[in-house]
Write a protein that binds this DNA or RNA. Structure first.
Lengths: 147, 147
DNA sequence: CTCGGTGCAAATGCTTTGCAATGTC
DNA sequence: GACATTGCAAAGCATTTGCACCGAG
């Protein structure tokens, strides 16, 4: 994960909108996210930052996550729970999720064919896609063996 | 939509689990849902029932929705907002959603090919699918014309 | 110096829970 | 009669908001 590249994207995005300002908090959130593997929620991101000694409030964490989502550096998902989950989107291919209902594990997968099919459907309906999320709920191989 | 068929499914489900009881509230919720076209949330379902003179509490509406989801009569989705959305699942094919970020419109579509591809991926990963949700966020044709 | 951003705490809104009353089996 | 279910109101939880203070441009 290229930290400088991500910073550059954020900087450009902030400048392109005359009203948005470049603050240390926004870059601190971005830096922390870049170190996280897999999914996370706003709360765990907040505590991770606090633990590392970064001074920030939860409100700013939420605010920054929205901003990072707008400039495409972060993806926001909503699985079964009532918590939003995020993950870094920088330099990663579009991917989808298999979610195990027993252990909560999330398996990612990529499938070009599926993405193409999706675009076809959108074309038929005159719909312009921006982002998409395919979530398959079920039982993973580990839990099948256990049960 | 076959009301009797739906009742039968619920009745069998309740009996198959020794502890679950058959209550008028549960059937009232099911009946109301059968009359609704498209998506709805717990709150609007509650007010719809109250308006029609059905005596029920919100807690019971939530409780019943969970139950109906378990026996496959109702699907639960979570789109962008922080509200869960439901729709009847009885007698309907598996379908997916195009969600317009501008007007909030939800366009449904069915695609066998896509479903088959999904199953293939699951097979490769040793994952047993139970249900799935594909959500494509973007702009619908109406909003494109406006904008 | 101006106005957007931050931080706190309080507010919001959906959903769940505790508990007494009720109704199913 | 036993115990699951209901209804109400209160509690929970993630997220948002109001407002005084701060700091980027």
């Amino acid at each position: 994960m290229d930290v400088e590249g991500a910073h550059e994207i954020l900087t450009k995005f902030l400048k392109s909108n005359g009203k948005l300002r470049s603050t240390p908090e926004r870059f601190a959130v971005l830096d922390t996210i870049l170190q996280i593997q897999g999914h996370f929620d706003a709360d765990s991101l907040y505590y991770r930052m606090i633990t590392k000694g970064v001074k920030i409030s939860k409100a700013t964490v939420y605010n920054s996550l929205d901003l990072l989502q707008e400039c495409g550096l972060v993806s926001k998902y909503r699985f079964a729970e009532n918590t939003s989950r995020y993950e870094k989107a920088f330099g990663r291919p579009q991917h989808h999720h298999l979610i195990c209902l027993e252990c909560g594990d999330i398996i990612e997968f990529v499938n070009d064919h599926l993405d193409r099919l999706q675009d076809e459907v959108c074309g038929e309906k005159g719909f312009t896609p921006q982002s998409s999320a395919l979530q398959v709920f079920g039982t993973c191989s580990k839990c099948k063996k256990k049960g």
